[in-house]
Design a binder for these strands. Sequence first.
DNA 1: CAGTATCCTTCGTGATACTG
DNA 2: CAGTATCACGAAGGATACTG
Lengths: 133, 133
Amino acid sequence: MPAPPVGRTPSNGGPVPDVNDAMCPSRAILEHITSRWGVLVLAALLDRSYRFSELRRQVGGVSEKMLAQTLQTLERDGFVDRDAKPVIPPRVDYALTPLGREAAEQVWSLARWSERQVDTVREARAAYDEARA
Amino acid sequence: MPAPPVGRTPSNGGPVPDVNDAMCPSRAILEHITSRWGVLVLAALLDRSYRFSELRRQVGGVSEKMLAQTLQTLERDGFVDRDAKPVIPPRVDYALTPLGREAAEQVWSLARWSERQVDTVREARAAYDEARA
DNA sequence: CAGTATCCTTCGTGATACTG
DNA sequence: CAGTATCACGAAGGATACTG
């Protein structure tokens, strides 16, 4: 299937609703699950559910802001289930929904494929860089 | 984990040395093939090979700069084969390598899955937004 | 035709501080 | 503990003009 044609390219000037979001909703979904932290969060939750801080430790290097943002996006899309327990101190557990598990498995499979190609790709890059040095 | 400092930042695109190359090489690969234009380029080339301008028309809304940059990145990683014919006017054909075809098939499969979930996700979002309005 | 070079705007990300 | 608010900065991305 050919790529979806995009009508206009926003001439620089006005706040334009994301062209691809409007034109191609699936692009937004794909972006959410393949985003830098999205991949790692989904992968972590593939094992078991996590609390916020647990997840933050499990996914190394993510800021609170980005983790919260990533989780909200995934929750809104219906990939992650948020279970906030009304206790003090607050306790919130995050888990995959069935749909989220489907997504996680696929994206994780792609991630593992990428990992397997690391050496091949490194060689390709070396050859490419060599050819124009 | 602070982002490691990077040497040069070319004003123009081109295969930019990826910050994540050092810390997580597979992440860079994943990023290249799931990038906004990377997905679309790989998908288009799944059908057949294309010339630069053909590809630009096929993938609607991509600027020359981004298409060139995307193609260079994919070529450098060994996913795309660039065949520049020494004629005037210049003619360059782009095609998938076998490795690129593997990548394209997987990412396109994920993209099609995303497309199938569009309605489900839209409902999930509506429910989410409803719940906090 | 197939790109490069330059300039500029927008966006993502992180640091920090604060709240329930 | 689990977030939200604000700010600052570099990187991503686009428009345009130019070149072989």
